[in-house]
């Protein structure tokens, strides 16, 4: 298993380099000008100088290599300095956002908590809701509970978050006035009442996303349970005289969790990717919102870096899913 993990990690290095190159070239080839938002009154020569100041004067391959060095050498050094108080990264050029002229990673680090609070929490809640629903729906297939569960997950699947989010705002913020419609990123939790406020402002975005996540995962859980409930070994367990609780929770559930756990692991990168639309609807200053504004402003280093981070997460969690598969299913051995 360890050998497998190391081999896969080594393999992922060329994969990630290729991904970063593809992202870079796509952005390079895409139309758009970082100077487009500069007023028309600024003369073209000045604009040209501004472009050069951003590093756009160099040919693409030089810029790509520079980005690689900045991201893979300088940024880790900055992190190292930050943790151990050393000075490796002093005076070295980091990946700089064209919008704010501050290092991209600093902004990303600022935004991650918001995304994790809202999107991460919704994922956790979605999973916690989905698993029991899936288990019960499968155990009592075609019961009223199952029918309702199917109906709700169909809604969760098919209603887009920009609709359900706005609907919640209209009902609970505009009409009832229970929850704020805008997520206050600057809010600090330091006592009970501020905690209550934090909960209040989280409820709507979290429930919109949790519904969406729970819909998918509960379907997976149900299908996987149904697969296993009809297996012969379940009959064996019953013939042994096990209680129904042991049959379902030990025999069936443990086997059914194998595919579900990997699905859950594969969904984690999307959490970090943020829910672009939901973050927009509720004005959560998360990573998704950061990406969308960077795209609008043609902030190429920001878009490049964010997209690449998502790519890394996807590669890593694919590996995590594969390793989990090996851990959970004794029939799968990698070495």
């Amino acid at each position: 298993m360890l050998n497998f993990t190391i081999r896969r990690l080594l393999l992922s290095v060329p994969v990630l380099v290729i991904i970063s190159f593809v992202i870079f070239m796509l952005l390079e080839l895409a139309p758009g000008d970082p100077m487009a938002n500069v007023p028309l009154t600024v003369p073209p020569e000045v604009k040209e100088k501004m472009r050069e100041a951003l590093g756009l004067g160099e040919p693409w391959h030089i810029r790509f290599v520079k980005w690689l060095i900045q991201f893979f050498v300088v940024e880790p050094q900055v992190l190292f300095d930050h943790v151990f108080g050393t000075g490796f990264a002093e005076d070295k050029l980091r990946v700089i956002s064209w919008q704010t002229r501050s290092p991209v990673m600093d902004i990303v680090v600022q935004r991650i908590p918001q995304t994790l609070w809202v999107v991460g929490m919704s994922y956790v809640i979605g999973v916690l809701i989905a698993l029991p629903i899936g288990v019960i729906s499968a155990y009592k297939q075609y019961s009223i509970f199952d029918q309702i569960g199917t109906f709700v997950s169909m809604i969760g699947f098919s209603v887009p978050t920009f609709f359900s989010g706005v609907l919640l705002i209209v009902i609970f913020s505009v009409n009832l006035g229970w929850f704020p419609s805008i997520y206050d990123t600057t809010h600090k939790v330091n006592d009970w009442s501020s905690f209550v406020f934090q909960m209040k402002q989280m409820i709507m975005p979290v429930s919109v996303l949790a519904l969406y996540n729970a819909a998918q995962i509960s379907r997976f859980m149900r299908a996987s349970m149904l697969d296993n409930l009809n297996q012969d070994y379940v009959r064996t367990a019953r013939a042994k005289g096990m209680t129904e609780k042991v049959v379902v929770l030990v025999h069936v559930l443990r086997n059914s969790m194998i595919p579900v756990v990997t699905v859950i692991a594969l969904g984690v990168p999307q959490v970090f990717g943020g829910a672009i639309i939901t973050e927009q609807v509720f004005k959560v200053n998360g990573l998704g919102q950061l990406l969308i504004t960077a795209i609008q402003a043609n902030d190429l280093p920001m878009v490049q870096t964010l997209t690449f981070i998502f790519a890394v997460l996807i590669v890593v969690f694919n590996l995590v899913a594969d390793v989990l598969y090996g851990v959970l299913d004794p029939r799968i051995r990698y070495d």
Binding site: A239, K240, G241, D329
Partner: peptide, 23 residues
Amino acid sequence: ELRRLRPAMQMVFQDPQASLNPR
């Protein structure tokens, strides 16, 4: 009651692969 009677009566199943819990 049935569960308590189970020890007296057991079954050997047809498919030895599928009837054993793989985990």
